[in-house]
Write a protein that binds this DNA or RNA. Sequence first.
RNA 1: GGAGGAUUCGCCUAGUGGCCUAGGGCGCACGCUUGGAAAGCGUGUUGGGGGCAACCCCUCAGGGGUUCAAAUCCCCUAUCCUCCGCCA
Length: 437
Amino acid sequence: MIDLKIVREDPERVRASQRARGEDPAIVDQLLSADERRRGAEVAFGALRNEQRELGKLIGPLQGQLKRATDDHRAGVQAEIDALMSGASDLSNRVKLAESDRDTADLETAALVAKLSNLIDPGAPMGGEDDFVVLEHVGTPRDFAAEGITVRDHVELGEILGAIDIERGAKVSGSRFYYLTGVGALLELALVNHAIAMAGLNGFIPIIPPALVKPAAMEGTGFLGQAAENVYRLEADDMYLVGTAEVPLAAYHSDEILEIDSLPRRYVGYSPCFRREAGSHGKDTRGIFRVHWFDKVEMFTYCAPEDALDEHQRLLGWERQFLDSLEVPYRVIDVASGDLGSSAARKFDIEAWIPSQERYREVTSTSNCTEFQARRLRVRLRDSDGVRPLATLNGTLVAITRTIVTLFENHQQADGSVYVPLALRPYLGGREFLVPV
RNA sequence: GGAGGAUUCGCCUAGUGGCCUAGGGCGCACGCUUGGAAAGCGUGUUGGGGGCAACCCCUCAGGGGUUCAAAUCCCCUAUCCUCCGCCA
């Protein structure tokens, strides 16, 4: 959630952000009026409750006296108590009413503030999905025609190599499921080991988190808003399957206060990711580019808000370092305001070249969520000035399926074998090529 | 799945309806003391909301209830521990 103080002091900034996202700016004004009611109700309740407590302070000691009093004083003390008690019941009722008003106003305000998406970073390009800005191209797509190679897509290569079994994935689990077999399975383990080793060198603490979480974790990370239809929910247990390790990693420190000296804290999580892909019927139906489940290695940082911009660049840098090590061509884009998730203030995607599609497609993504998730999850930092929210950021190191697509297609040879980038060889028994089975 | 027990300010703990609307110890911070340190002494030390301010309210795992008044009594839930059963 965003800071209510900002809504109060600079509502136009919040409205502008909502508009840039293509979301409702009117929530801001509903929120302002709810907040005013909330503060009024708070004052009214506080005053009544204070009155009640003062009364209690008078009655308490008298009750003590009554217990110790001799018979001739008892009647007098009792009379004093009765006098104080005479209005107490009525006061108690008024306290309860005021409390319930306050609670109602609190809930209204909280519900409205929860509807607001994060304030977008002024640096983000304005516009919709297609209004991204290309920041950089790295590497050059191979000219397969010049090499005399007819491009095979990853499905075909996966079959030739005995690496991907889509038919049986569909038989057992339905559409958008697959088995990784043989070198496919080995390749996942290699990618994961490579990614986590690299992250370890960069100061990340490896974590294998739970992939099934309670509603609070899902809500806190902002996935139950616009993205709710893409989340798997287990009705019988009121639990959710995570769509990314970002969820359990963000909730890891929920309700905690982290000392400023311990920041930044960098975690690298390896988890399965589950996505319903509602609303993407007919999109990327071939192969394993868009699936209901895949495994992913994700970076996650907790840092001071003032360090978030720099950290975002570092995360992007580490993503690039990883892509570089795979020796594939890619470009970096600055995602436009209308295409940001509700938690992100700014987002950079790395899109790798996919030869069979002859275009760049998203393989990793890094978001600066500023204080948005931290406020929802009550993760704060303590420095010499006290306690305040911190910033959270996340970035993909490797999303297995899309990375396999990228590797297979870019590194394919005329005979259907696939070149193994140098960085992965130590994790694949020194193989230079994956060869047809 | 069944039966017990636990949950209080970072840690330990006092507290069984009103002089506890939360006390003490440890730790930590600052000060005094000292040539310096330790010890000792003193002061401070949960978080949140509201108010121009003085200051007020909430917060004893969470939620309901009883009461003029709840850490304390009742109900529900969560988590942890022990034992039994079941499974790997």
